[in-house]
Amino acid sequence: MDVKDIIKEENLVYSKSKVLTDNIMHYCPGCTHGVVHKIIAEVIEEMGIQDKTIAVSPVGCSVLAYNYLDIDWQEAAHGRAPAIATAISRLHPEKYVFTYQGDGDLASIGTAEIMHACNRGENITVIFINNAIYGMTGGQMAPTTLEGMKTATTPYGRRVDLNGYPLKITELIAQLPGTCYVTRQSGHTPAAVRKLKKAITKAFENTGKNKGTSFIEVVSTCNSGWKMPPVKANEWMVENMFPFYPLGDMKDE
């Protein structure tokens, strides 16, 4: 049965972006990945750039992101998406190239690649999902895991004397002259979703104007890794993540 059989055309106030495929997402209920995928799909559709967008997905929970957005994709080795995107963008300068990366991918194993791609000012957009944990491998400590936070490899909570400090990589990225737009957003309320969509639109527009690297961190939840139901996870994120990772623009040139 089609939507049209259930809801009359004039009563239809919302429909799924055409850029989203019909594949059932593998993400856990409440996971931020799904929200961000939806927003990216909407932005691509609204900007009319489906045939000009090439995405690079990471190793992490979003390794299968190419199943959900109807655009050309390259799947990267863990952490290397910015290097891959560098070549795609330089060889296809007219295309909109973005990477989609988790915190383990971007801020741990791929630190060198993200720093240098941003510092070269590669004309790409980076979407950085910071859920403070390694979701895919079963909830181990990430570089962004908060002090005291329990994970599979910090079962008594992250200790800075043992594990070092949580890494505010977006603040580092904002220092790099190659970046033109660096912002930290979230997607846990309708208002936050609207702001995030604006940010992603601006980033893609920057790519269209050849302005250099746009970098969007999305402070996110991981219900299964955090071992919390979705609503509780959102509350925990607001109370604990936002004070350490404050939302807002760090750079907009």
Partner: peptide, 13 residues
């Protein structure tokens, strides 16, 4: 590491 992944990206195009 970056160089060979750039090759991956370019070859993928």
């Amino acid at each position: 590491l970056a160089a060979i992944n750039m090759v991956y990206g370019g070859a993928g195009c």
